[in-house]
């Protein structure tokens, strides 16, 4: 094993620890529930299974975004889907032996890689040239970094071929806490290093959006009962 491999593997662990620490910190803040807040007196209606399809479309189809901005929704939805598939495709580096379905999925995974890049560029273009009312430099940095990571990933796959066996060894080293040598490839180094930066920049509250989306769905249901008798 080489020193760069150890340093980069450790850097990833540290980045992940920071992220997980941040998530735990958030959970602590959320758990300190106030008793003094006398404002949420509405009776809540339970979420029935019959509403599951609606809940699914709220979360999976990002319905609120679709209503707010259909153009951006196209980019965001493709981004989320393709990102999930790209991550799924990366699983084969961390599992030994990798299940056969992961290899069957390979072509689709590559298509997702292109889709990821295209959707990110599309989102950036919409944000930069069409929706210019509000600009978050933080969001822009994250998007730009994701574009860079996807470009380096595609380059590795299509042009600057990198030894997959070396990558697998390195990835398995990460997964089993036994750091291995970094593959001899500057494009892989760039890809991996950018990913560490991404983890460091990733907000620890990234998982809160589904909670608020679900709550908004319940709120839209509950509002019908505030001033109206429920139909029997």
């Amino acid at each position: 094993m080489n020193l760069t491999g150890i340093i980069l593997t450790s850097a990833l662990y540290i980045a992940l620890l920071f992220f997980i620490g941040g998530v735990i910190g958030r959970l602590i803040i959320y758990s300190e529930v106030s008793t003094a807040n006398g404002t949420h007196s509405l009776k809540r209606r339970p979420l029935f299974f019959s509403r599951m399809s609606s809940i699914f479309s709220e979360l999976f189809l990002l319905k609120r975004l679709m209503k707010a901005n259909p153009l951006l929704w196209v980019g965001e939805w493709l981004f989320h889907i393709s990102f999930a598939f790209v991550l799924l495709r990366h699983l084969r580096y961390f599992i030994e032996p990798a299940p056969a379905w992961l290899f069957d999925f390979d072509v689709f995974g590559i298509i997702s890689g292109f889709m990821l890049f295209s959707s990110l560029v599309f989102i950036l273009a919409v944000k930069m040239f069409i929706e210019r009312a509000y600009f978050s430099s933080y969001n822009f940095s994250l998007l730009a970094l994701l574009v860079f990571i996807s470009v380096t990933g595609l380059l590795m796959n299509m042009i600057l071929k990198t030894d997959l066996v070396e990558i697998k060894f390195f990835a398995m080293g990460i997964a089993t806490f036994t750091p291995q040598s970094l593959p001899v490839s500057s494009i892989f180094f760039t890809h991996f290093f950018s990913f560490i930066i991404f983890i460091l920049l990733l907000p620890s509250h990234i998982f809160t959006a589904p909670i608020t989306i679900l709550e908004a769905f319940r709120r839209d249901e509950d509002i019908k009962t505030i001033m109206h008798d429920e139909k029997k």
């Binding site: 300190e32 003094a36 807040n37 901005n69 009312a133 933080y138 969001n139 709550e215």
Partner: peptide
Amino acid sequence: KKNNSFTKDLSAQQRIEIDACTQCGECLK
């Protein structure tokens, strides 16, 4: 919680909501 906490009197849901804002700017419209 210390006295000058900014979250002491917020509900858990409201604390989550403050975090959940993605700064997308759609609301400005």
